[in-house]
Design a protein around this nucleic acid. Sequence first.
DNA 1: AAGCCGGGGGA
DNA 2: TCCCCAGGCTT
Length: 306
Amino acid sequence: MGNVREPDAKQVAMSGALIDWFGHAARDLPWRAPETSAWGILVSEFMSQQTQVERVIPHWLEWMERWPTPSALAADEPGEAVRAWKRLGYPRRALWLHRAAVEIAERHGDEVPADVDALLALTGIGPYTARAVAVFAFGDTHPVVDTNTRRVIARAVHGKAAAGMPAARDLDDMTALLPGEREAAAVFNAAAMELGATVCTARAPKCGDCPIAELCEWRGAGYPENAPAKRPKQASFEGSDRQARGKIMHLLRAATAAVDPVAALEAAAEGSSGGTTRDATQPQRALDSLIADGLVVEFEGRLRLP
DNA sequence: AAGCCGGGGGA
DNA sequence: TCCCCAGGCTT
């Protein structure tokens, strides 16, 4: 981390403008209510990984009603967490959230730890989520770097259209903008994320609504079209293994009893008879990978959630 | 460093 | 159609 230096005048102007803007423009997300527990913050962060927050809201409300504490979730079967996850995507997150709840209940006295390193040690929590919980649940003064803040900094500070690959530099960039005062630092982290999510968007930024347009280097340079972020090209979802896995999970979530493996393989192949040749081994491969992930369990020759 | 992992919203 | 989304884990 090295020496912490005082933000310069432009950095102060930028963070100040973002904090002021956030005061009136922030979305009314339920976990932003002041009485939300650290557990509630942690759940919201798990659900929001690679998922737009608007889609998370109903799942979060239902989840917190049913499992208001880590120990409440830990007392239920992991499969119940996977079932309640519904179609949020990446169901491994539900499994990992359940594991994290067990770890918190067993190792931390049912209290979400406030320390970044302790958070990082929990299942499913990485650099982003650990700092997000430390900052948004406990008011700590770490830089929170997600896909939104990386894009905002790339544009406003570096004058580039898009962020490069994630790097250690991202944390330093965010730290340079972070106000020294504790409460302001937490609000600034949320404000930078909010700007990236609602105004400084990847596809069609609303620069007319931007509170830091006058300070933005990208705007000042005339919106140069730099090389786009080298994000790994995601394979088409249609016909993918991921889609096949999703179909099996959909069947198992809806099932009230363990299902015949043949039915699961048929579900995985559903819709694949559309003319183009498809990998005949895909259904079995999808099922095997789900079992390897612990999302599906073999039980007396049938399949069920864990 | 690269690949993999869901599903939906928006252009 | 393609790109993107409050990422993290495995190899």
